[in-house]
């Protein structure tokens, strides 16, 4: 269970950043007043364009960033005050966070298992299960740097699940993956959902959100502008598909002339 209440994240901009963003403001509001809940047994999708604040929101949930305002609780633990407990309940996956390429998937699984205080027997069982599930058993002792991109991603997912987390946070789950690996990942996320896990993903790919997510929150310019199940969003916006619905919302928020 994830509860985000009135989350606001403001970045202070350095002179270099100001020049990069071509702004004179010394602050950038990345997320503004976002509240949402993700429940066990559901996949919640954060949908929005690049720079909308999806990754920042997920990083705040994963305790990597501290909210400027608002609160986040994961399985009842506060992400700021009880960061360690939160990290023991979650797994956070993103393309930017990788496994040490000098070690094998098997070593990394054991290493992170150790950091999560998993006993050896459970660790061995889980390793067999996940490695088999993702088809990496034959490559488990190969150095991660020698694995293919898809295999690396699957190894990273397997290792991140070492502690059987209750909450799975996935930033752009299929980004950079070939269609087969992407399918393996989305299928597995559904499996996890069915086993009662709380899953929150961010994506800007409409078709992915449509197929994968039980509920969707649309984020534009750091604000949550719409939320609901796929059917409720379609009905709400009188749209044929999610992409259609998203653009209707987007036009309303940004104004007609801002598109294209």
């Amino acid at each position: 269970m994830i509860e985000i209440r009135d989350l606001t994240k403001i970045y202070k901009l350095s002179n270099k950043k100001k020049a990069e963003l071509k702004t004179k403001d010394s602050e950038k509001v990345a997320v503004s007043g976002v509240s949402l809940e993700a429940h066990p047994g559901e996949i919640y999708g954060l949908l929005g364009p690049n720079g909308a604040g999806k990754t920042t929101t997920l990083r705040c949930v994963a305790t990597l960033l501290k909210p400027t305002k608002g609160e986040i609780s994961v399985c009842g633990f506060d992400t700021v005050k009880e960061g360690k407990q939160v990290r023991d309940k979650i797994c956070f996956l993103t393309n930017e966070i990788k496994l040490d390429p000098h070690f094998s998937a098997s070593y990394m699984f054991d290493f992170f298992g150790g950091l999560h205080n998993i006993d050896e027997e459970t660790l061995a069982k889980r390793k067999d299960f996940f490695f088999e599930r993702f088809g990496i058993t034959d490559f488990k002792d190969k150095k991660i740097e020698d694995l293919s991109t898809g295999m690396k991603q699957k190894a990273a997912i397997a290792v991140s699940l070492v502690h059987d987390p209750e909450v799975i946070i996935f930033d752009e789950p299929t980004n950079g993956l070939d269609i087969i690996t992407a399918r393996v990942v989305t299928d597995f996320l559904k499996e996890l959902r069915d086993s009662g896990k709380t899953i929150i993903v961010s994506t800007h790919i409409m078709s992915e959100a449509q197929k994968l997510c039980d509920r969707i929150g649309m984020i534009i310019d750091g604000k949550k502008v719409a939320e609901g199940t796929l059917s409720s969003l379609l009905a709400q916006e009188n749209a044929e598909d999610l992409e259609d619905a998203f653009f209707k919302v987007y036009k309303r928020v940004k104004g007609e002339d801002k598109i294209g």
Partner: peptide, 15 residues
């Protein structure tokens, strides 16, 4: 490790 993104994976551990 920071550059390769492997340090962040450690920051996510419950330590």
């Amino acid at each position: 490790e920071k550059e390769r993104g492997t340090l962040s994976s450690m920051l996510l551990a419950p330590i």
